[in-house]
């Protein structure tokens, strides 16, 4: 199970802006981040193309082929808050692992956030590294995204046997073999083959 870092964001009205965050392994590629707790935001604009959200892809609520749908982040390490939908302003707490404490963006007159793009510190715990990026324009939060990186070994051991599976990465090898039986992408061929015992004929479709 992947962990999202949490950040609290105050809007002009002082209402916490809550957006659901899902960093799970299913194809929903929604870039929303649940905010709760007292994560602080870095000041200053940072130009970046990092910190992007999950790769765009199939979105939607259905988890095809999976036995469980949705994976709410589990609370676990101290300092983290459970992710729940719905507006809530909670104080204190913070992301798991060590977070660099940086000052909140100074509200401009009218209480708006400072415009720009801000990247949070990379927060690393034993499960991996999370980094949140927010965009503020017109004094309003207009985008939040989070990136998460970890090795698949970490993921698969977080919750023991019920953890979602991920694919293992390995080196692409090219093997020469005497294998005559090959599965591959469909190819076109008009070759004719005959063989022992039974006369095999190629179907010319």
């Amino acid at each position: 199970m992947r962990r999202a870092s949490y950040a609290v964001l105050g809007t002009i009205a002082g209402t916490a802006l809550l957006i659901g965050a899902r960093m799970g392994t299913h194809p929903a590629g929604q870039n929303t981040v649940i905010v709760s707790g007292g994560e602080t935001l870095p000041a200053g604009e940072v130009a970046t193309d990092g910190g992007g959200g999950p790769a765009g892809g199939p979105s939607g609520s259905t988890q095809p082929g999976a036995s469980t749908s949705g994976r709410p982040p589990s609370p676990g390490a101290s300092g983290s808050k459970p992710a729940t939908p719905g507006p809530t302003m909670t104080g204190g707490g913070g992301p798991t692992g060590t977070a660099t404490s940086t000052p909140q963006p100074t509200p401009t007159s009218g209480g708006a956030l400072k415009n720009g793009t801000f990247i949070g510190p990379g927060v690393t715990d034993k499960f991996g590294t999370v980094q949140v990026t927010i965009t503020v324009s017109g004094g309003q939060l207009t985008n939040v995204s989070a990136s998460y990186s970890s090795s698949s070994d970490n993921i698969s051991h977080i919750n023991g046997k019920n953890a979602p599976t991920v694919l293992r990465q390995e080196a692409l090898t090219a093997q020469s073999s005497n294998i005559t039986k090959v599965s591959g992408a469909t190819y076109y061929s008009n070759s004719y083959k005959s063989s022992l015992g039974s006369a095999l004929t190629t179907a010319h479709a």
Partner: peptide, 28 residues
Amino acid sequence: MGLAGLDWLATLDGYACGVVTQDARCLR
């Protein structure tokens, strides 16, 4: 599905997979 297919394939019950991406990553 593209890259999101990697995550989806990992969830299939009873089916295994091997994937090579266009940038030559190899996962199974």
